[in-house]
Every structure is written in structure tokens, then in C-alpha cells.
Amino acid sequence: HNLTITQGKLFFHYNPKLCLSEIHKMEEVSGTKGRQERNDIALKTNGDQASCENELLKFSYIRTSFDKILLRWEPYWPPDFRDLLGFMLFYKEAPYQNVTEFDGQDACGSNSWTVVDIDPPLRSNDPKSQNHPGWLMRGLKPWTQYAIFVKTLVTFSDERRTYGAKSDIIYVQTDATNPSVPLDPISVSNSSSQIILKWKPPSDPNGNITHYLVFWERQAEDSELFELDYCLKGLKLPSRTWSPPFESEDSQKHNQSEYEDSAGECCSCPKTDSQILKELEESSFRKTFEDYLHNVVFVPRKTSSGTGAEDPRPSRKRRSLGDVGNVTVAVPTVAAFPNTSSTSVPTSPEEHRPFEKVVNKESLVISGLRHFTGYRIELQACNQDTPEERCSVAAYVSARTMPEAKADDIVGPVTHEIFENNVVHLMWQEPKEPNGLIVLYEVSYRRYGDEELHLCVSRKHFALERGCRLRGLSPGNYSVRIRATSLAGNGSWTEPTYFYVTDYLDVPSNIA
């Protein structure tokens, strides 16, 4: 807008934040220059609390790290170098490059900038070799853009010569660093050979998330399962459950009422301010606690030095998902009996873990797994792929695949051998790939016309006998059925096997 004052003059007093240069501009645009008398524009009460600059400061050096910015700028000295009290560095987070010096300023003089007072450097006698002032900004957020400017702080001049310097606002972004852990990993099994893994992005990506790394490792069953005799009275049979499938998407929606109208769909109840505040506090606490764990609990591995020492970490090797089922080394339970199943799973520490690289999504279907087997899954978020990966501390989750139908069934015939004193040795093959492992066998036998009897055969007993022995049988026709019990439950009964026990007292003698 054009402003013209045809008559009258300007009068400025007691404006401590208004620089004289701005008042002189007002004289020019209003056409009143030359009308004012000496005392109409006070030299001592206008701009006496402001830094009124008329020179431009330029930054000469900028260096960044993930949490620091090192700045240096060209030296500046007023005509009387004693008038320079120091520099004021202003900075704040700036997602967009549209910041002005006066953003967030209120009537009390406060604003949204963080201000650092910096002492002037030592003055050199040689004007050509003056030290460049600077400042190291610490405690910054990774991968965050900051708006920065600097200006001088000078003393009051009796001659009211307006001098000083100020830089333009520059924008500097800190470097990326390792992201925080992925949030809320959930693993479920939808079949006997697959596990579905879902997660949420890290709360602090500290860069642009480029991919996720998912490692999985087959877990050995508890050692007590191999040692305890679950045929003993009072000892509860062990059981394991597989990871249940995901709930429906509708039930997972946030901010939804727990109660549904019987007449149909209901609208979600909005969260109160107290609920939102509580969630923010919980989120802040979780982030602080995660940072504490990362800094205190997890110790970084030592990389190899120039002395030739090897990095103890196993090298990563990509495998196809079809090879995942046989990740671990199978060892027989008892070496003397080769027909026992290889369900003991000690994992070799030198073995390469299978892994998958996930790009542009937060889910993965891990296939080719062994049925009813526990897996430990390790999830890392990465925001750099080359020249070397920059990934987060791992988040861990466990899951067990679903049982395989008929995996616990005894394959092959049940054979028998009759000894003296009416002892019958029953023999059968253990299931080759049971659900988890076989903890015991149930032997059901009966003599024709009598009630059915049951015998429990422990895992250890089966390994020693290759089956079991029935003792003290009365003469007669017998039928026997056997079924295995694994961590997933009972298998199917075998087809009945028949044998006849004679009275050993009636056996004919070869003595003449």
C-alpha cells in the first residue's frame, strides 16, 4: 500500500525493539523526510534493546553428524571492536523451508527459537588472519532439518551509529543413524509349514526405512522333555500350542467401542483428552525405555581390526524358502538304536541362519518350516543398504507352526516275539517326523474274553527296548493296539495285532 503524509511529521519514542533503520525507511515511504526535528525521533529510546544489523554474515563451514552440527561463519568486528559482546545463534526444527525470524513471537518477546549466546573469538592483530567464530550444536535429532541463523550482539553506541551483522536463515539436516526397533511384532501360524509375521514401523526411523531383515531359527525343545518319565503317576503330560491366527481386521481397528449394538453396526467412541494424553505418555515412556535398553543392555560386537582377528559373527547367506525346513542338525536320541526319531534339535552355532529381506511392506510369510516346531524370529529395521547396512537392534518374537495331521501315527506293522515265561516283546517304529517329539506310547492289549488293559511306555523305555515287553501273560489269544502321544496330543491307534500265548508248562520236552 502507498502511504503519503502531505502535512505533519513523524514522532517515535520509547520503541526499544524498533531499529532506527526501520524508522528511516518509514520517513522515505511516507514522504516526511526532512520535516522531523532532532528530538522527534529519539536516538536513545528507539532500538536500544534490539540488534540492528546492516551487514550480512556468511557461514564459512558446515559439518553434520547424526546428532551434531558444527558451524563456522566469517569474522565480524565493528569499528570499535570492544562493542562486540558476542553472537546469538538461533535454531529450531523446520520440516519445511518457510521459516521466518519472527515465527511464534508474542507480545512478551518470546519466540519459538532456541538461542545460544556465543563469546567472540580472540581478536588477531592481523586483519587478514582473524579467527572464524563458530559453535557445535549438540543433542539434535537424527535425520531432522533445522533452520539456523546467527547475528551479532553489540553494545549501545553513544554516537548512535547503527552497526551489526546478521546471516540469512539456512537449512541444515542432520545425518541418518540406526533406527529404533520395529514396533509390535506379531507372529502367527496359518499352516503346519508357515508363519505369518506382521509389525509396525519404528517410532524413530532416523532416516528413510529402506528394508527390513527377518531372521528365523528353529528352537530346540526343553531338555526336561527328553529326561522326564511322563508315565509316572502324578506327572502331567506336557503340551505345546501353536500360535493362533490373526483376529479379523475389524476387531483390530483402534479407537473402536468394545460393545456392539445388537441391531447392527455401531460407531466408534472418540477417545477423551485424558485417554489420548495417557497414550502419549505411555508411548514416550516406551521410547525412553527402549533407548535405555539399547544403550545399557546391548553391547556392540567388536569388529575385526587390522591384526587379522576374525569377526566372530557368522556370515549372512541367503537361502531359498524351500530350504528352511531342514535348518537344524538332527541327532538321534540314543545312538545305539537307529530307529528312534531325530527330534532332539541342538543347533550348531556355526550354522548360517536363513533370512529374508523385506522391502516396502511390514509383513512376511515364512514358508518351508517344520510342522509343530518353535521358531525364534528376529526382526531388524534398516535405513541404508549400501555401502553397508545400517540397521536397528533386533526385536524378537516366537511362534510355533501348526501340527501336521497323521504325523504322530505309527507307520509300519507292530511285530512281536514270544519268549519263555510268557513274555512277549512288542516292537514298532517311532514316527519319523512327529509333531514336536514323542513323549510316550500307549499300549492297549486284551486277552479274548477279558477286559482291555493299558500300559504306558516312556520315551526312554522305548529307546532301550525298541518297544516294550509284556510279562506274566496268561495263555490265550491276544490283540494289541499302540498309539503315540506327542507334544500336540495323541496320534491314531494302530491296526490290531494278534498273537497267541501258550502255557509254557505244557511245552513238550526233548528229553527222552
Rank of each mutant, 00 (worst) to 15 (best):
V297A: 08
S341L: 10
A335S: 09
D503Y: 08
N206T: 06
R301P: 15
Y259A: 09
R469W: 08
E247H: 08
G489P: 02
Q252M: 04
Q252N: 02
V480T: 12
H416I: 07
M427W: 06
E465R: 04
Q275R: 10
C269W: 08
Q384T: 10
P403G: 03
E465Q: 14
P475E: 06
L237V: 09
D323I: 13
T210S: 15
N490D: 02
F372V: 01
G325S: 12
Y448V: 06
Y478G: 00
G412P: 05
E282R: 11
K302R: 11
V365A: 14
S315T: 13
L228N: 07
P338I: 11
D385Y: 08
I418P: 08
T497Q: 14
F246I: 08
E217V: 04
L470F: 03
S251N: 09
S320A: 12
S398M: 08
Y448I: 14
L225P: 07
L280S: 05
G476A: 02
R481V: 09
P312K: 05
D222Q: 04
A484H: 00
Y448T: 14
E420D: 11
C231S: 03
P244G: 11
E351M: 13
S363L: 07
V345K: 06
Q252R: 08
E279I: 05
L225V: 09
G449F: 10
F337D: 07
Y445R: 02
D250T: 07
M427P: 01
E265N: 11
N422L: 08
E420F: 07
E290D: 12
K460T: 08
Y441K: 00
V423K: 04
A395Q: 13
E362W: 14
V424T: 03
P475H: 10
S486E: 00
A407S: 09
T333P: 03
R286D: 14
S320Q: 08
F215I: 12
E356L: 09
K278P: 12
V359S: 08
A395C: 08
V358K: 13
E417S: 08
E258W: 11
A405K: 14
F462D: 02
L505H: 09
T347C: 14
Y396W: 10
E260W: 13
V414I: 14
W493A: 00
Q252T: 11
W216F: 12
G467Q: 03
G325E: 06
A309M: 10
A488P: 02
K317E: 04
Y375F: 11
E279A: 06
A309F: 04
G207D: 05
L453T: 08
E260Y: 10
G207P: 05
G374V: 05
S392G: 01
T373P: 00
T373A: 05
S274W: 08
L379S: 01
S342Q: 13
K287Q: 08
S283F: 14
P312L: 13
D450Q: 13
R466L: 08
R319S: 11
K233L: 14
K271S: 07
C391K: 02
K287H: 12
L232E: 08
L455S: 10
C266K: 14
K271D: 04
A220R: 07
N477E: 05
S284T: 12
H425T: 06
L505D: 10
W216L: 13
T272M: 08
P338S: 09
E433Q: 07
H211R: 06
D261P: 11
P403A: 07
E442T: 13
Q380G: 06
P346K: 11
H461I: 11
V393W: 11
P403T: 11
S320Y: 14
A399W: 04
E247A: 10
G436Y: 01
E282Y: 03
N339D: 12
V297E: 08
P244F: 09
M427N: 02
A394E: 06
P475G: 10
C468S: 03
N339R: 11
M427R: 11
E362H: 10
K302I: 10
L225Y: 06
F419Q: 04
E417P: 03
E356C: 11
W242I: 08
A394P: 07
G467R: 06
G368R: 08
T347M: 15
L232G: 11
P403M: 09
E465S: 10
T386R: 14
L453E: 06
F419C: 15
A463S: 09
E420V: 06
R318A: 09
K287T: 10
D311G: 09
E417T: 12
L440S: 07
F419K: 12
H416L: 10
T497N: 06
T288L: 12
I438G: 01
K460Q: 07
T340Q: 07
L505I: 14
